[in-house]
């Protein structure tokens, strides 16, 4: 059996997201020009939550969208069988000169962020990109750091940090998973 330790329960995640939304407004000095983009799949759910919080707080609509970075991965030729490609969808406002907030669930090697930034550059010329993650678990392989973080943890390489969202997993939490290699 895999061992699971809850790092953040639902209330903790919601408090973190509320603080993260405020930090985004602070960094951008208001809500003007913001675009929120979630990285598929769980980043999209988190981005929607942050968007809802921002819209309630700032009382303006915040454009949002989703990024699927499959076609920008640096390990595609080694992965196979091919991962299913999801759709990227951008708000009609585009990203040019906007402050684009890229939302992901867990920041690990930084390779997903690299891919997301490359994709964004193909979409246009953002005025600024902010990286916003619920959990930074360390273990970076690229010089990439987050701007807004929910929780920083030091996980060992063999451990996995999972963000669970109600839409996909039935609950909202952050969990540390120790895989039992024998059984797997």
């Amino acid at each position: 059996m895999d061992q699971r330790i809850t790092l953040m329960d639902e209330a903790a995640v919601e408090r973190a997201l509320a603080r993260m939304a405020r930090e985004i407004v602070e960094l951008n000095q208001g809500a003007e020009g913001l675009v929120i983009l979630g990285i598929r799949r769980r980043g999209v759910e988190l981005a929607q939550r942050i968007q809802t919080l921002l819209e309630a707080e700032e009382e303006v609509p915040i454009p949002s969208g989703a990024l699927d970075i499959t076609l920008y991965r640096d390990d595609l030729m080694e992965v196979g069988p091919r991962p299913l490609v999801g759709e990227s969808s951008l708000p009609l406002t585009g990203v040019d000169d906007r402050c684009v907030v890229v939302v992901d669930d867990v920041l690990f090697t930084g390779r997903t962020t690299r891919a997301a930034m490359n994709e964004l550059m193909d979409w246009g010329r953002p005025g600024r990109i902010l990286l916003c993650v619920l959990v930074d678990r360390g273990g970076r392989e690229l010089p990439i750091q987050p701007d807004v973080v929910g929780r920083t943890v030091s996980a060992l390489p063999q451990q996995e940090v999972e963000v669970l969202v109600p839409e996909e997993d039935g609950r909202l939490s952050v969990e540390l998973v120790l895989r039992n290699r024998e059984e797997a």
């Binding site: 699927d68 076609l71 490609v85 999801g86 969808s89 193909d122 979409w123």
Partner: peptide, 16 residues
């Protein structure tokens, strides 16, 4: 399905 959208982009190119 997702490849349809790439042809609608301003920069119609992905590096895959």
């Amino acid at each position: 399905e997702p490849f349809k959208e790439i042809s609608e982009r301003r920069i119609k190119k992905v590096p895959v």
